[in-house]
Amino acid sequence: MTAPRTAPAPLPAAELTRLTDRLHHDGIVGLPQAFTRDWVRELGEDIDTAFAEARARPGGAVGRGPHRYYVEIHPEQLRGFTELAAHPWITAVAEAVLGPEYRIVEVGFDVPLPEAVDQPWHRDFPMPEETARDRRLTSLAVNVTAVDTEEDMGPFEIAPGTHWDDGSTFAHGMFPPREDYPRYRDLAVRKYPKMGDISIRSALTIHRGTANRSAKSRPVLVLGLDAPGAGNDERHDTAVTREFWESLPDAVRSHLRCPVVEKLRPITQKHTIEGLVMGEAES
């Protein structure tokens, strides 16, 4: 795959501090032009291939609301996995927030198709005890859009600062009561990333996909990162073949603690609760 750029420059210390401070304050930061458009075009091709394969078999794709799907894949299904996992902007933020021994626990993508509706406001999993007690983030999600996001394509909407919200009244620890929706609407910011842009966020920050009124899909890659012991790897089935494992640089292998197998098995999706509840769109 085409490299994201020639030797991507490390983040200056002051910029890294600014980003991590904002991440703790808002729950999300954007990093524009991390990759070239050519790199993203190939990413989009790989997503399209994996999406078609996943939808052709039972359990390959899980619904996240009408006309909206999530698919978890294995790292080697992406030609650009190494460039993604080793990008110095991503690794710098991950090390600063999660520690130098952070782990890659998830590779997947969301695809809102035409006619996808507004999702209910949600976080992606219940708040860990360490976060509630110590206000310490134990996981991050890196998002990479495969297209230029336009207003009618159902932009991602997020309520900054809500990653610290007490979720004790949330259904399944993830879905806030509807009486809280007006607050999230007041806080909400819609995101319009272009090909090459990435975001890094806490998946605890309350967010939703909005209605896709266009004739185009809006695929977005998800790279899930954990601090040691966070436990999100239990929700995922990441594996690599021995040949792929041996092709990875040590800097990537050190963060990819997953089974090394002779042959990959297609992943059956586990996000059953989200798949059921996501159909309850906001009226």
Rank of each mutant, 00 (worst) to 15 (best):
A14L: 12
E15R: 15
L16V: 08
L16H: 06
T17V: 07
T20V: 14
D21R: 10
I28E: 01
Q33R: 13
V40A: 03
I47H: 15
D48S: 13
A52N: 11
A54L: 10
A61D: 04
A61G: 07
A61H: 08
R68A: 11
E76W: 09
L78W: 08
T82D: 12
E95T: 14
A96M: 05
L98W: 02
P100N: 12
Y102R: 10
E106S: 08
G108Y: 12
D110Q: 09
L113P: 07
P120V: 00
H122I: 00
R123A: 00
R123Q: 02
E130T: 09
T131M: 15
R133K: 15
D134L: 06
R136I: 04
V142S: 02
V147A: 05
D148V: 05
T149W: 12
D152V: 05
M153F: 03
P155A: 05
F156P: 01
R178C: 00
D186G: 07
A188F: 05
A188P: 03
R201N: 10
L204I: 01
L204M: 13
I206P: 00
T210M: 01
R213G: 03
S217E: 15
P219G: 08
L221H: 07
P228Y: 08
G229V: 06
D233V: 11
D237Q: 15
E243T: 04
V252T: 01
R257F: 06
I267L: 13
T268M: 06
E282A: 02
S283K: 15
